[in-house]
């Protein structure tokens, strides 16, 4: 199995980054021709999803999630965390992460990721800005 990572320094509180090209570079570097590609975020207030890379869709997704998981709701997570020594302010990030999920898979055939024309991989930031890491593994089959 080949494992590599993508580092991101996000700039906004909520944002979407298309990381398809970075994943393809890692696949190429692995020299594995056939297998399964897994993309997984290391964080609990971010997500990985596959969708079409259109500004309008990104906006719709962001507004849909913000209406569903409202910043002004009451959350039990909003409290001082002794093991952090700081106050948790990011319950909405955790819940959005839960809804979208933390990973995706692709099939790899003859060195090419098999995906539809409209499919791109999105890294979703729900508690930025922050320094983030996405793990990519290629398992040879």
């Amino acid at each position: 199995m080949f494992v590599d990572q993508i580092e991101l320094e996000t700039k906004k509180y909520v944002d979407f980054y298309i990381i398809t090209k970075e994943i393809e570079k890692i696949v190429s570097k692995s020299q594995i021709k056939n297998g399964v590609v897994t993309v997984i975020t290391k964080h609990t207030t971010t997500a990985i999803t596959v969708n079409e890379a259109l500004e309008c869709l990104q906006s719709d997704i962001e507004i849909f999630l913000s209406n569903l998981v409202r910043e002004d709701s009451s959350y039990s997570h909003a409290r001082m965390l002794r093991n952090y020594g700081s106050t948790a302010g990011n319950p909405t990030g955790h819940i959005k992460s839960l809804l979208i999920g933390n990973h995706c898979h692709f099939i790899l055939v003859n060195g090419q990721i098999i995906k539809g024309d409209a499919q791109d991989v999105f890294f979703c930031e729900f508690d930025g800005p922050s320094k983030r890491t996405v793990m990519v593994s290629i398992e040879e089959k």
Partner: peptide, 18 residues
């Protein structure tokens, strides 16, 4: 204060902007 990592000045600038 724990689990917070180090912050680059670029990250600090992003936080200030937000």
């Amino acid at each position: 204060i724990h689990h917070n990592g180090l912050a680059s000045l670029n990250h600090i600038s992003n936080q200030m902007n937000c």
